[in-house]
């Protein structure tokens, strides 16, 4: 079973009061402030506000939050098939027999699965890469779940033969690099590789669209039907 990649161990017990914590703050509170500071999008002020909110919180609620945080790290793992985050060895989507098993949508992150599922427009399976090839950040194909995807495509049952792989990576440079790599790796197997359409988002002003978006919009233009 694929284990969820743990974060490198980091102590959150500071030897001295952390610089972000205000002076005179009790050590347990400054420890919580320091822990919150490590979360994405949380600055020192937000970390302090959250920490003091915790101090005022009823003990039962605080215990529930604490249990939820430890639970998420202990219970979740990666799906053996698609590498999405799940509690079971195989996630709900992969084990659902009503899903179309001939189409796989490749996404960068588990959150992308949630976004695509919200549309209710897709009934196939997924494969989560856990990142994108990034020449500027030094993230190569071997750092992602690409090998697992290729193995999955090779080892498929004849009755569930995949006919199409939809590459739904982001439309930035890293996403494009990943899409091109996947196309290069999968196409020789005779499987159709498609890319999500790129163009103008709903409600946008054309004058603010960048050249690449406009060029893709022109390429993917469609006839107006009655």
């Amino acid at each position: 079973m694929a284990a969820f990649r743990p974060d490198p161990p980091r102590s959150i017990t500071p030897a001295a009061p952390p610089s972000d914590a205000p002076r005179g703050v009790a050590a347990p509170v400054s420890r919580v402030i320091e822990a919150f500071r490590r979360l994405p999008g949380i600055g020192p002020k937000s970390a302090q506000r959250l920490a003091y909110h915790l101090v005022r919180m009823p003990e039962a609620e605080a215990a529930e939050l604490s249990e939820a945080i430890t639970g998420v790290k202990q219970r979740i793992k990666l799906c053996d098939i698609c590498a999405d985050i799940t509690e079971e060895p195989v996630c709900g989507i992969c084990s659902n027999t009503n899903r179309d098993r001939t189409v796989i949508c490749v996404v960068e992150e588990p959150l992308d699965v949630t976004a695509l599922e919200r549309t209710r427009a897709y009934n196939g399976l997924y494969h989560v890469l856990h990142g994108a090839i990034s020449p500027t950040s030094g993230i190569a194909a071997s750092d992602l779940k690409i090998k697992e995807l290729l193995q999955r495509l090779q080892g498929q049952k004849p009755s569930e033969e995949v006919s199409e792989v939809i590459v739904a990576t982001n439309t930035n440079l890293d996403g494009e690099a990943t899409a091109m790599y996947l196309q290069r790796a999968i196409a020789p197997a005779g499987i159709k590789v498609t890319r999500l359409a790129r163009g103008l988002p709903s409600g946008t002003d054309i004058e603010y669209a960048d050249d690449a978006t406009l060029a893709h919009s022109l390429e993917s233009r469609s006839e107006i039907s009655d």
Binding site: P135, E176, A177, M180
Partner: peptide, 24 residues
């Protein structure tokens, strides 16, 4: 505003990685 999006680089993996090397 974009002056040049270098669109041909974005459609070719070899050119894209080379261009990234230049930028790096």
């Amino acid at each position: 505003e974009t002056v040049n999006a270098y669109l041909p680089l974005r459609n070719d993996l070899d050119r894209l990685t080379l261009a990234s090397h230049f930028a790096e």
